[in-house]
Simulated assay, not measured.
Amino acid sequence: MQTTMTRLIAWVLVFLLTWGGFSPPGWAGLQDDRFDGNIFALYAGNGSLVPPRVTLQDALTLPERPAMLVYYLDDSRDCKVFASTVSQVQRFYGRVIDIIPITVDSLLPAAHPDPTNPIRYYRGRVPQVVLLGGKDGENHILLDEIGQVSLNHLDEVLANWFGITPRQPVPVAPRQFNDVNVELAPS
């Protein structure tokens, strides 16, 4: 009886230590390169960006309406931080431009991609922003930048495109308002 009880206690301890005692908690983190899920929903509080409303092919049929391609990875620290900026661009310009977030994991290589293939504009690093548009019926690259493009710079380019006065440059910084979500706020 004593050995049976000892074996049972040993099995219970092995089970608890293996399955319940040492499992790490599931934390989403803005400052790491781990996959946490949709970065726009988690870090920008905006799940409406993914999947995009339109495809690049559809957006290019209306060159007078700019298309903003955002190349990203869900497991990139830089992309997680940049998600908030993309959400703010949607807040200001979402009704007059097409924002097309593209995860680079979904891009398929092509020898000579046509203009409707997103890989044509991708330069191999994330985050990358490409603004396409043309008032002459042709699509032109208005902006092609890699890295943390500031909201003020994107606002300046888009305001120029629409012929309006850019907003007053405001120094903004990502501000974490809970364990996951981040917003751009005046610093």
Results as ranks from 00 to 15, higher is better:
residue 183 E to T: 12
residue 38 N to S: 13
residue 17 L to F: 14
residue 20 G to Y: 08
residue 152 N to G: 13
residue 117 N to A: 02
residue 126 V to Q: 02
residue 152 N to H: 02
residue 94 G to Q: 03
residue 78 D to L: 02
residue 78 D to W: 06
residue 160 N to F: 12
residue 103 T to F: 01
residue 148 Q to E: 04
residue 71 Y to R: 00
residue 18 T to Y: 05
residue 86 V to I: 14
residue 83 A to L: 03
residue 121 Y to F: 09
residue 87 S to D: 04
residue 107 L to V: 04
residue 131 L to R: 10
residue 29 G to V: 00
residue 9 I to C: 10
residue 70 V to C: 04
residue 84 S to V: 05
residue 186 P to E: 03
residue 183 E to S: 12
residue 183 E to I: 11
residue 64 E to K: 14
residue 39 I to A: 13
residue 178 N to W: 01
residue 150 S to K: 00
residue 51 P to R: 01
residue 143 L to G: 05
residue 3 T to A: 07
residue 84 S to T: 14
residue 164 I to K: 03
residue 141 I to P: 12
residue 44 A to V: 07
residue 185 A to Q: 11
residue 121 Y to P: 12
residue 110 A to D: 06
residue 135 K to G: 12
residue 158 L to M: 09
residue 25 P to Q: 07
residue 76 S to C: 15
residue 39 I to D: 09
residue 75 D to F: 13
residue 109 P to S: 04
residue 129 V to K: 02
residue 95 R to F: 00
residue 84 S to A: 15
residue 141 I to G: 11
residue 178 N to P: 11
residue 117 N to P: 01
residue 157 V to D: 03
residue 32 D to Y: 12
residue 128 Q to F: 07
residue 154 L to R: 12
residue 143 L to Q: 09
residue 19 W to R: 06
residue 113 P to F: 09
residue 1 M to L: 10
residue 62 L to T: 15
residue 16 L to K: 05
residue 38 N to Y: 05
residue 75 D to K: 03
residue 47 G to C: 07
residue 106 S to N: 14
residue 163 G to W: 15
residue 147 G to T: 03
residue 100 I to C: 01
residue 93 Y to F: 14
residue 167 R to P: 02
residue 28 A to C: 05
residue 168 Q to A: 10
residue 8 L to W: 15
residue 75 D to H: 11
residue 179 D to I: 00
residue 70 V to A: 01
residue 79 C to L: 03
residue 3 T to D: 09
residue 134 G to T: 01
residue 111 A to D: 11
residue 157 V to Y: 05
residue 155 D to P: 08
residue 159 A to F: 11
residue 128 Q to W: 04
residue 179 D to Q: 11
residue 114 D to V: 02
residue 102 I to H: 04
residue 14 V to M: 01
residue 112 H to F: 14
residue 75 D to S: 15
residue 14 V to L: 14
residue 22 F to I: 06
residue 79 C to T: 12
residue 24 P to M: 01
residue 54 V to Q: 04
residue 39 I to M: 14
residue 142 L to C: 09
residue 104 V to W: 14
residue 79 C to N: 08
residue 172 V to K: 07
residue 19 W to I: 06
residue 73 L to N: 03
residue 63 P to W: 01
residue 94 G to W: 09
residue 7 R to W: 11
residue 178 N to A: 06
residue 168 Q to D: 07
residue 183 E to R: 15
residue 162 F to P: 03
residue 7 R to C: 02
residue 24 P to N: 04
residue 67 A to P: 15
residue 66 P to E: 01
residue 137 G to V: 00
residue 84 S to Q: 06
residue 9 I to A: 13
residue 138 E to N: 13
residue 179 D to T: 04
residue 144 D to V: 02
residue 141 I to L: 00
residue 100 I to T: 05
residue 144 D to R: 04
residue 159 A to M: 05
residue 109 P to E: 08
residue 156 E to T: 13
residue 15 F to E: 00
residue 85 T to D: 08
residue 162 F to G: 00
residue 62 L to E: 15
residue 127 P to F: 09
residue 126 V to I: 10
residue 19 W to V: 08
residue 112 H to Y: 13
residue 89 V to R: 05
residue 67 A to I: 09
residue 9 I to Q: 04
residue 106 S to T: 14
residue 39 I to G: 07
residue 7 R to A: 10
residue 91 R to H: 14
residue 105 D to M: 06
residue 166 P to C: 12
residue 153 H to K: 15
residue 3 T to N: 14
residue 17 L to Y: 13
residue 41 A to H: 09
residue 187 S to P: 13
residue 58 D to E: 15
residue 138 E to M: 10
residue 136 D to M: 08
residue 43 Y to F: 13
residue 13 L to F: 15
residue 44 A to E: 05
